[in-house]
Design a protein around this nucleic acid. Structure first.
Length: 501
RNA sequence: GGUGACGUGGCCGAGUGGCUAGGCAGAGGCCUGCAAAGCCUUGUACGGCGGUUCGAAUCCGUCCGUCACCUCCA
């Protein structure tokens, strides 16, 4: 049975139910990053939208085919003041201070692509069915460009191949940017080509035999334009018509507009039925920028600051994708606490499940109700704040009834885990020489510290027993300085690592 | 200038005609040697101005503000 999954469709400007081409099979493409550096939390907010779509679709029993690309081809930057040479991002990264450690662009691309996979895993994003790379689909791109030329939708100039926007009447249907005069005025062509027939025309292929990444084509050595890779790879793995295409809001124009033009000029049919775009996040109320010091990659938070990766995930999905979102450290701290409670609840229900107990019917009913609310919230344009509220409500219920939990409680945690991906269950696989345990990412070297910590806690316990509280408090302060937080309870003292935020 | 989105309390963020969102922070209490965590109780709101309606945060108009894009940045 299929339920309506409603999403805001950029194409129509309305919230509409996903209307699948093949019943119960979602074919879905999401634009991935250009890997010239570590992906930042803004990138991941966008990837997380795709992740939630996928999880929700699966929860209502849909089969899913999810493709998200890795752009590993350099593309020209548009930063004409900083970069008058029109150098591309990959090449620029190679020449940066961080880039000098790489032998060449290919090496750089491999490194950051591995880092992306690792971050991806840390934030518990589901594995795509296909994660194609632009450089592995050059042949298909060339073939598509040839076809576009043959049907008159593209033309060759001395500098490259351009798509002829004039030949595609629907150009502008996604972004609303239809007026060619307006574009003509605004246009800032990176590589000025006087042979372009229309200022709106965009490059499918750039001729350049000096470029660091170049391939041989019918038009000589060069590299593909940015837009062509996505539509080609989407059609390659998902077919000419797809159900859903996602990306960041900055991609609406020109990237997605151009994808539509390329794909639909070729097939004469709608490329994607639905388009969703994730709004940018701000950090502490400001646009994320390196010079303001509010620019964060996943590893800045997880490795440098020791934040539990799932807390980062929770923070990033705590705002609805379609609304502007302000990422703050206050939110992140809250999320760390939520994740702790979720873990506690999970541990409690796990045992209950192993015992094969049944919940009291009232508890079971309450949790079943919450599960419905969570799913319904997600089906309603990925209303994550509401879904999280219901999930946490269930967690609170579980923690309150810790001693009488059964299977339904365990199922509730499984549901939260499947739908929102915010339940820490097992240690994540190690990455980058760091081991991630249930208390967050801790460098392995600290394993030997554990003993010292335990000893200090022992000493404090003795001091407390002897009612020497000033000594006990001193030890607690020392531990706190080591980012260790302790809790006294009836069963003794427990400790955990605290993040540095 | 053009295109699109958004504007809810101290903060983050749901709610789309009448019915408690939730979280954080604040206040009071329980627990604790003191903390931390947890639990209980609790106040504050819908950008401005018009209009429609018995009734508007919600619909319509208008103004103001914020964000994004305008040729290769999620």
């Amino acid at each position: 049975m299929s339920q309506a999954f409603r999403l805001f469709n950029t194409l129509t400007g309305k919230i509409e139910p996903l209307n699948l081409i093949e019943p119960n099979h979602l074919r879905f493409y999401s634009c991935g990053p250009t890997i010239y550096s570590y992906a930042h939390i803004g990138n991941f907010r966008s990837f997380l939208t795709a992740d939630l779509v996928l999880r929700t679709a699966r929860a209502i029993g849909w089969k899913t085919t999810y493709v998200t690309n890795i752009t590993d081809v350099g593309h020209l930057t548009n930063d004409d003041t900083m970069d008058p040479s029109g150098e591309d991002r990959m090449a620029k990264a190679l020449q940066s201070s961080e880039g000098t450690r790489f032998a060449n662009v290919w090496d750089l691309s491999r490194f950051y692509s591995d880092a992306l996979q690792s971050d991806w895993q840390q934030l518990n994003l589901l594995k795509p069915d296909v994660q194609p790379r632009a450089t592995e689909h050059i042949r298909e791109q060339i073939q598509t460009i040839e076809k576009l030329i043959s049907i008159g939708a593209a033309y060759v100039t001395t500098s490259g191949v351009y798509f002829s926007v004039d030949r595609f009447s629907d150009y502008g249907k996604l972004s609303g940017n239809q007026a060619s005069e307006a574009l003509e005025q605004a246009v800032r062509d990176v590589v000025v080509d006087p042979e372009k027939k229309d200022p709106r025309d965009f490059a499918l292929w750039k001729k350049d035999d000096q470029h660091l990444m170049q391939w041989y084509s019918p038009w000589g050595w060069g590299f593909p334009g940015w837009h062509i890779e996505c539509s080609v790879m989407a059609q390659c793995y998902l077919g000419d018509e797809i159900d859903l295409h996602a990306g960041g809001e900055d991609l609406i124009f020109p990237h997605h507009e151009c994808e539509i033009a390329q794909a639909e000029a070729l097939t004469g049919r709608p490329f994607s039925r639905h388009w969703i775009h994730t709004r940018f996040l701000q950090v502490e109320g400001q646009k994320m920028a390196k010079r303001i010091g509010n620019f964060f990659t996943v590893r800045d938070l997880v490795i440098e600051k020791g934040v539990e990766p799932l807390a980062v995930r929770l923070a990033l999905i705590s705002g609805q994708y379609h609304k502007p979102f302000n990422f703050t450290f206050s939110t992140l701290r809250d999320c760390e606490r939520h994740i702790k409670r979720i873990r506690e609840a999970y541990d409690a229900t796990k045992n209950a499940n192993d015992l094969g107990r049944q919940d009291q019917s009232s508890l079971a009913d309450a949790l079943t109700e919450k599960q419905h609310l969570i799913l319904n919230a997600l089906l309603d344009d990925l209303n994550t704040p509401a879904a999280i509220a219901h999930a946490l409500d269930g967690v609170r219920t579980i923690l309150k009834n810790k001693d009488s939990l059964g299977r339904q409680a365990h199922e509730h945690m499984t549901e939260i885990s499947n739908l929102l991906g915010i339940v820490p269950q097992a240690a994540l696989p190690p990455s980058d020489g760091h081991v991630s345990n249930v208390r967050g990412s801790i460098p392995k070297a600290e394993d030997s510290q554990t003993e010292i910590i335990e000893q200090m806690i022992q000493k404090r316990s003795i001091a407390r027993r002897e009612r020497d509280f000033s000594k006990a408090d001193k030890i607690r302060d020392q531990l706190l300085e080591m980012n260790i937080e302790i809790k006294d309870s009836a069963n003794g003292t427990t400790w955990e690592h605290k993040s540095k935020i």
